[in-house]
């Protein structure tokens, strides 16, 4: 096996939010890598800065310190495309025009845009809904559009910010299987933020566990559960063992985060 190329390199990245009185350290010297074609899951308690990390990778937020590098292998492709929590579709655009939004902004011609939209909508099973507006779709369908929009841009790295968190349990399970299928077909590098350890174990090649505020890399776990992976993996002893191991550590972080939410530690408030 050849040495994996680091597609995403995050080196000692810190993010501090400055407000009127105080500054809050959201990310504290985060370092991690994602290899080309890897499905990397980031898990942590609320307030561990998971979404902040994704925003730094997406270029929506500038880190206060440290370095972020994304290896560009395909000239003309955007570095990242984000699938947002609760889809964030543009409500005045049809499904098709939402999917082609990124291509349009890059000046891709109409014919190519529409061909690409057809391809992506077929992949997420929404061919018949190309001319619908977002408000006419169910939550699961909207998020499929969000995924199609990201894939249509053909980014170097796909960023996903708790994309299934707002869906009901059954829809979420189906979407997880869909994601596995799409990822297997396209071989994209994915950085996937979730608060669900089960979801991370089902989808990820590795799991980065972040600590409670400020977010630090608590530990990185390889997920050696084989590929292709389906829902049946949940019945395997290896899955159960790994879940238990990571959960023990995550539990500590969650409890710590809850304790801090009840009463902020005065030593940390003005870090």
């Amino acid at each position: 096996m050849p040495t994996p190329v680091p597609k995403v390199l995050v080196n000692e990245v810190s993010v501090t939010f400055e407000s009127h009185r105080r500054s809050v350290l959201a990310l504290d010297r985060i370092s991690l890598q994602a290899h080309a074609g890897e499905f990397l899951c980031v898990v942590g308690p609320s307030g561990s800065g998971k979404s902040t990390l994704l925003r730094v990778l997406a270029g929506l937020l500038r880190q206060s310190a440290g370095e972020v590098r994304i290896e560009a292998d395909h000239p003309g492709s955007p570095l990242t495309a984000m699938v947002f929590q609760e889809h964030a579709l543009l409500p005045w655009r049809t499904v098709r025009d939402n999917v082609t939004f990124g291509l349009e902004n890059r000046g891709v011609g109409r014919a190519e845009r529409e061909a690409r939209a057809r391809e992506m909508l077929a992949m997420v099973g929404l061919t018949r809904f190309a001319a619908h507006y977002p408000h006419q779709l169910s939550g699961g369908m909207k998020q499929r559009v969000g995924i199609a929009r990201a894939l249509a841009s053909d980014p170097e790295v796909l960023l996903m910010d708790e994309p299934l968190a707002a869906l009901d349990a059954q829809t979420r399970t189906i979407m997880q299987e869909e994601l596995l299928r799409i990822w297997a077909a396209l071989g994209k590098t994915v950085v996937y933020v979730t608060h669900s350890l089960e979801e991370a174990l089902l989808l990820g090649d590795r799991i980065v566990l972040l600590s409670a505020r400020p977010g630090r890399v608590s530990r990185i776990y390889p997920v050696d559960l084989g590929r292709p992976r389906g829902l049946e993996v949940r019945a395997s002893p290896a899955y159960g063992a790994l879940l238990e191991t990571i959960w023990a550590r995550l539990r500590e972080e969650v409890v710590r985060a809850m304790a801090e939410d009840r009463g902020p530690d005065p030593d940390r408030a003005s870090a």
Binding site: L60, P78, M82, E86, A88, G102, N105
Partner: peptide, 13 residues
């Protein structure tokens, strides 16, 4: 919705 601005930025607008 500020997320729509993020969508714009992330998708090259």
């Amino acid at each position: 919705d500020p997320r729509l601005l993020e969508v714009g930025h992330n998708y090259g607008a």
